[in-house]
Nucleic acid binder design. Structure first.
Lengths: 238, 238
DNA sequence: GAGTGGTCTAGACCACACT
DNA sequence: GTGTGGTCTAGACCACTCG
């Protein structure tokens, strides 16, 4: 009998981790192809893929579409309790942020949105869709719903970089309470496409409801993050 | 040619979702075995398993050890900004909470812990490990590190149900600032075992550093949650 | 056009859970 | 003991990316 001992996915994980830790592979570097790894370690693609998925779950590597596997750069530290802007805090962490406006339209609140925002059905809103990333990698898509009633003419402003800055400067409106809601799930087909991830990729959904100083709802922000791109930090003082 | 069209994992997902939505399967119900599903839908176990993993990522079903797949009950809504206790808010949401003390020992801060807590290396601490769940399902493990210096004799108290209550009532100490840190990752072998999940299961890591009113660090809380068991809600007032 | 990741087939063995 | 989930082998085809 030639009885070759089966190669476990755990050993493939160990091997790949060591490559990354040794520095043979740096953040955003591409890993060798699945077939090449399999051949090198004398195993099958299924086992190699299993190992890759484990590392992906740990946030060590990530996938980009059908282009391959890459080493994950540091997570973006995001503190929703600090009044800071994406473009600023990513830069502060030594990475290059980018922001792309995908859509800006006037809509009317449907039943679902109205419920989430606590406004009447049919209330006029401005919907803004953005894609944001760090370096070469898109990290989240967001959908922002703004109440035109409280922010007249907001649809004509440049909102690509920061909505909060416009609200503060152009409307002399300060934020009051913010309600955050976070859940781990997986990406829809359309969101996955935008984030250059396979459908079903593990994601973090953040829903943020912002009020003004008088307690009126200003905006609803729905974010979908690649799970491995985010580290959430919140500071509470009671 | 007999050329049977390949069955896609997407169609298996659709089929299982419909079973759950129709009410054929209720929360915590066990799904049929992988082989049975495969045979019923004329496909292989690999494809069925792929579908099950997709539903797992979405949080629709969960695994328990080697016992099988089950329908996920509602997520526990957890608001760290409210002064509430696990046992209370789970009950409030109509589920039966449980809490089990796994360990309680006196230790000295090692380098890693000292750094996280901002205390000197070697500072005496009380380490408490607990396992908590809802219904029949364990949902998170936690490791609590308490500063004996500020909480003398804390190791002799009953801490199974609520540390915060003891601190408040027995030490007349109020909490001040709380720093939260959240990240999505995967379970270690030991944590997975405690949570009756396979190693590598997707998890949410929550790190909570609590200060007293004077700004002194009181405790460090390290929690590992099953990703599908938690919905985090935070209310911030600026 | 060559090569890659994404997916599916059709088996197999093992360790553990349940009865 | 029986059956289950967990894992691995050894192929195959397709759709897409990249050069």
């Amino acid at each position: 009998m030639t009885a070759r001992k089966a190669v476990t996915s755990a050993s493939v994980v160990t091997y790949l981790r060591s490559c990354i830790n040794k520095g043979d592979l740096n953040p955003d570097d591409k890993l060798p192809s699945e077939r090449e790894i399999s051949e090198r370690l004398q195993t099958t693609r299924v086992t190699t893929r299993e190992a890759l998925k484990q590392l992906e779950a740990q946030g060590v590597i990530y996938r980009s579409n059908r282009r391959g596997w890459f080493v994950t750069p540091d997570r973006i530290k995001y503190d929703p309790s600090r009044a800071m802007f994406f473009m600023d805090y990513v830069a502060e962490q030594g990475q290059q942020p980018f922001s792309r406006e995908l859509q800006k339209t006037k809509i009317k609140a449907d039943a679902e949105i109205a419920l989430m925002m606590g406004v009447p059905i049919g209330e006029p809103l401005v919907e803004l869709q953005r894609l944001r990333g760090s370096g070469v990698r898109p990290v989240y898509v967001e959908r922002i719903l703004l109440r035109e009633k409280l922010l007249p003419g907001i649809d004509k402003k440049d909102l690509e970089n920061s909505v909060s800055r416009v609200i503060r400067n152009d409307y002399q409106t300060e934020y009051g309470r913010i309600d955050l809601d976070m859940v781990v799930g997986s990406l829809s087909v359309t969101d996955a496409e935008l984030l250059q991830a396979p459908a079903g990729y593990t994601s973090i959904t953040i829903q943020r409801l912002s009020y003004d100083a008088k307690g009126e709802v200003l905006e609803l922000d729905l974010e979908q993050w690649r799970h491995d791109a985010l580290q959430l930090k919140v500071s509470l003082s009671s």
